[in-house]
Amino acid sequence: MLNGIPLEHFVIVSAVLFSAGLFSVLSRKNAIMILIGIELMINAGILNLVVFGAFDKQKNEGQVFALFAIVLAAAGVAVALAIILNVYRQFKTVEPNQVEEMKY
């Protein structure tokens, strides 16, 4: 199935992708880059969903979830961008390190 590429390879790719996203989330200073990292992580998850769906012969539930997740991700990005925009307005920066209001 899928040209004989085993499931493990997909999972590995997905994990790499997730790790790259996570690294980006943790290390980037710019909120946009963090958002991108989040997107990468979501996409890693979606990739997994798609792959697991492909291996699911009866129902293709994975594809359905993938579509659903893509939509949610899109919505999330929209919200996140809006927040970033507002943060920028408030703090004149998009660097989360300098936005420490949350600790109070």
Binding site: V25, L26, P96, M102, K103
Partner: peptide
């Protein structure tokens, strides 16, 4: 610290 990334 209030740093989101650190929390994460």
């Amino acid at each position: 610290t209030g740093r989101v990334q650190q929390y994460m």
